[in-house]
């Protein structure tokens, strides 16, 4: 399986700041593109029982409704924040998890075991969707960039560079904030309690790490007492 070139942080950033009507238009355009690129997928989705699944990326301010089945063309709709009509089922997870799942690059059951993916409602709807998507070889990045027509390759390069630049900028910003914190900590004008607070924070973090390790060891010890094989 080819690794994904999708600059997910860039996608997440763009989806966060895009006004709803722009996002809705972009989704429509991508759906039309995918319909042309994956006609079998849309045929298979239409064959299923009719369902509406709400998709809720946990790190985005938007929710989506995916309608498919009942011999009708599948479509995705941006949900109005005030719309509380329930779907048949709901899928929640980080946007990169959801995009990777859509492209069949990660295993949904493994995500379920670790609760990286939370589903609610009619499980048959979710299982039918997952199994139908898994039949296809979907490369969302290629589908998006192919919308640029003959400029697909330059667009791929530009988006990749933009994604990397965004990550680098984020990294630099984080470093800058850290340096400001350090500066403030060593500033004699900073409040007297600031150093103590930071020291306590560090101590709490160390204790939390130690506690987590002890819990893992306890779990392993319990597992070993029930099953000497391995865990």
């Amino acid at each position: 399986m080819k690794p994904s070139n999708m600059p997910t942080p860039l996608v997440r950033g763009a989806m966060t700041v895009a006004p709803p009507f722009v996002l809705a238009r972009a989704i429509d355009a991508l759906l039309r593109k995918m319909e042309r690129a994956h006609p079998r997928l849309f045929k298979n989705l239409a064959r299923l029982k009719p369902y509406v699944i709400h998709v809720e990326p946990s790190d985005l301010p938007h929710r989506f409704a995916l309608k498919f089945g009942g011999d009708e063309k599948a479509y995705v709709r941006l949900l109005d924040p005030r719309d509380e009509t329930p779907g048949d089922a709901c899928i929640k997870g980080d946007i990169d998890v959801l995009l990777n799942l859509l492209q069949g690059r990660i295993d949904g059951d493994a995500l379920f075991f670790t609760r990286g993916l939370v589903i609610a409602g009619d499980t048959a709807a979710v299982v039918a969707l997952r199994n139908t998507l898994d039949r296809e070889e979907i490369d969302l990045f290629a589908d998006v960039t192919s919308m640029f027509g003959p400029l697909q390759k330059p667009a791929e390069r530009a988006l990749t560079v933009l994604g990397r630049a965004r990550e680098a900028a984020r990294h630099r910003a984080a470093e800058f904030i850290d340096s400001l914190r350090e500066e403030r900590a060593s500033d004699p004008a900073a409040p007297a309690w600031a150093n103590e607070r930071d020291a306590l924070k560090a101590e709490i973090k160390t204790l939390q790490t130690r506690l987590a390790k002890l819990e893992v060891r306890e779990k392993l010890a319990k597992g070993a007492s029930q099953d000497p094989a391995h865990s």
Binding site: F113, T114, G223, Q226, D227, P228, A229, H230, S231
Partner: peptide, 19 residues
Amino acid sequence: SELSEGGRQTFGAYKKGWR
């Protein structure tokens, strides 16, 4: 282990160590 149910693994009956 990340693909495993419950995140854990065993030799099962091959090494019959369970209760």
